[in-house]
Each structure stands twice: as structure tokens, then as C-alpha cells.
Design a protein around this nucleic acid. Sequence first.
DNA 1: TTCCTTGTTGTAAGTTCTTACAATAAGAAA
DNA 2: TTTCTTATTGTAAGAACTTACAACAAGGAA
Lengths: 211, 211
Amino acid sequence: MQSRKKVPRFKREAPEKRRADLVQAAIRCLAEGGMAAFKMERIATEAGVSLGLLPHYFKSKTELLAEVYRASLYDDVDRKIADLDDKAIGSPTERLCRIIDAIIDPDYLKPANLTVWLALWGEIVVNPELRLAHRALYRSYLKSLAVLIGEVAEERQRRVNGTEIARSLQALIDGLFLERALDKQAVSHADFRRASYEFLELHLGKLTSAA
Amino acid sequence: MQSRKKVPRFKREAPEKRRADLVQAAIRCLAEGGMAAFKMERIATEAGVSLGLLPHYFKSKTELLAEVYRASLYDDVDRKIADLDDKAIGSPTERLCRIIDAIIDPDYLKPANLTVWLALWGEIVVNPELRLAHRALYRSYLKSLAVLIGEVAEERQRRVNGTEIARSLQALIDGLFLERALDKQAVSHADFRRASYEFLELHLGKLTSAA
DNA sequence: TTCCTTGTTGTAAGTTCTTACAATAAGAAA
DNA sequence: TTTCTTATTGTAAGAACTTACAACAAGGAA
């Protein structure tokens, strides 16, 4: 019987990798069916492991949700900040345009993300712990946007309230984003583009030459 | 034994009243804890009736949720619009201002409603039945807003895309509303007012004399 | 190879939730 | 009062979900 090859029944992974895989699987579940699909068994199946492995990595469902939140939010914010720093070349106007383009990028606003974010927002409102984490990250992001808008205004010798414009701009985008999430045919990418730039240009003057 | 007073064990209500009461109780539950608190037994307790009464009025949980959606999101505003139409008072501009004021009314945008709406939106994205209900209500509402904006524009002999302005305005308000839901100190009523009117006036010209 | 650590599985206990339904009784009608 | 309609109750069936835990086995160490 020594000739029989032993075929492994499962693969043993490094804890950090497995943990990250589980979080990603959980995000995919959220994207597919919102909180209603955020079930331990489903997540385990999605990750290709058994249900029993989940409590080994997360002592409760809430802990897993917190991880999902952190992972998905940090990724997004980090990407934006990286964009900011990388493209630090060029005029403020140019940088602002690039950031707007990134925010309304169809790939960023894809349906899967819409569903995940809506589910997370719904949880943030009723979960104080999640809410605290959200505030820090969101305020920091909004501030960097406000600073950039202020720079553009200065460049053009206009006096504006950068904080308020940043907030309204983000609100406008979030709102369109929400409409699109609830009714996929409601808002096209062109609509996003037009609404965002029109709004900004009404305050700052012409931003683009082509579009 | 005939002297013993029979004390009723429950009160029999008119179906329409009971139904409305149940919907209101469900809204209170949603407001308190989001979808996690939207449980049949909890709603029954909140309404002061037994669990068994719920399936008598709503053949499924989703049906109840759809009622909650309509009641909490549209009843107020629809009533306001109907009021304006009935009394047919004032110029289009005046009527538009009144509607805006109704939409950003602090009592309408109170925290409890924020929680309810976020929970509902999270469900709409993943529940086809609810999504259909949403589309009908939302599109109808948006259209009446667009028509009114068109009237204001005509009055002022401006050529605008009423549909697009209505959509962007509502998106702006929804977005601010979202920021407020996630961070209660982020947006004040004055912010709502300023952002809404500024946006409209950029397209339509001055709307108010005082504010 | 053999041993050992611990990642992984399978199962089940205990809980909670939705839906169904037969029995009960409130309140109107006659 | 008596009858009748149906709103309401109480309970339970059945499904689904979270968490716990004992046994198994993968893969590195010696």
C-alpha cells in the first residue's frame, strides 16, 4: 500500500493569507447580496473552506464585518491618496480634474462596490464602533479635496469656500451614485461627468478644454 | 356570576388603522437599529400586538418593508406636492421654493429617518421586488420636480434641462443627507439650504429675496 | 522517516426568525 | 339578548444561522 499517492484533502495556508482570503470572500458576498448574503456559511463556501474555519479566525461575525469595513475602505482611500501623491506634478487644476476623473471612474463606481458601500453605510449608522472609524477616514479625505479646490481658486484669484464646495461636490457624486445604485439605468457615466464638472465650473470657472 | 365585568383582552381596530399602526411600529424599529432590528416579533411587540397578527396584514416581510418604504419616504412629500397643486397658489418659483423647503425640512431629515432610509436603500439594491416599487415612486416624484423646474425656467425665459437639474438637485440633497447620516455633525440645516438654493440659482437665477 | 504543531473539517447544540393555522373573542348587527 | 363576522391570539413547525468543539491531517522540523 505504500505505492498509493496520498491526495491532500485540503491546503494549509499561512494564517495571514487565509485571513485576507476570508475577508475578500466576505466582500464578494456583500457585493452580491448585501447584508442578507453576509452569512458565515456562504462566506466559507465562497472562500472554498469549511464553515468551521471561520470562528478560528474571527471570534464573532461583528469582528469579521469590522475587518471587511477596514479592508474595503482603506483600500479605496489609499488608492485615492496614492493618486494624489503620484500625480503631484502639474497645476492644481489638472490635479483636481484627475481626482474627479478617478472618483467617477466607472470601474470605481461599479455595481459591486455600490452594493458593498450601501451595506456598510447601513451598518455604520447603527454601529458606533464602525462610525468612529468612518469619520476619521472620511473627514481626512474631504479635507484634502478642500485644500486642492482652495489651490485652484487661488490660482484663479477667486475667493471661495473650499470646504463647502468639496462637501457639496462629494455629496453630489454620492447622491448620483446612490441613484445609480438604486436604479441602474438612472445615471450614466456621462451624467456623472457633466454634473460634477458643471458644478465645479460654476464655482471655479472653466476647468477643461475638451470635455 | 353575571355581575362580573368582562374585561376585553384586546382591542379590535379598523383594518386600515391597524395596518398603518403596524407600519409605523416597523418604522420605529428600523430607526432604532436598522435592518438588524427589523424582526417580526419585535415589530409586533413595538405595536403592542401579538406576532400572529403580522401575517394577517402582510403576506410577507418584503411586503411590509415596501409599505414602510412608501410611508417613510414619500407620504410627507407627496402630501406637500398635492397641497401645492390643490391650492394652485403662487408662481412656479414660489411653489418650487416651498417644495425645496419641504424636502430639506429638519423634521423630514431627522436622524431617525436617516437610519430608516439607509436601511431601505441597502435592501432595495438587493431586493428586486422592492426595487420595482422604488423606481415607480422615485421616477414619478422626480418627474413632478422636473416639470416644476421647467415651469420656472419658462417663466424666466431660460432654456434648461429640467430633468437633469431635478436629478442633480435630488442627488445633491441625498448626498448631503448621507454625509449627515454617517456623521451627524457634518452638515447643518443651513448647509442644506445654502447648497440647494445655490445650486438651483446657478441654473435658474435668483429664487429668493430674503434667504 | 517519524514526530509535532496547528490549520482544517464535520457535526451538532442552541438560538432566532418567518410563516402557517386553529382556536378565541371583540364588537357590530339584528 | 343572540348571532355572526373576522380581528386577534397563542403556539408550533420548519428553516436558517451563529458558535462551539472534538477529531483529523498537512506540512515543516528533527
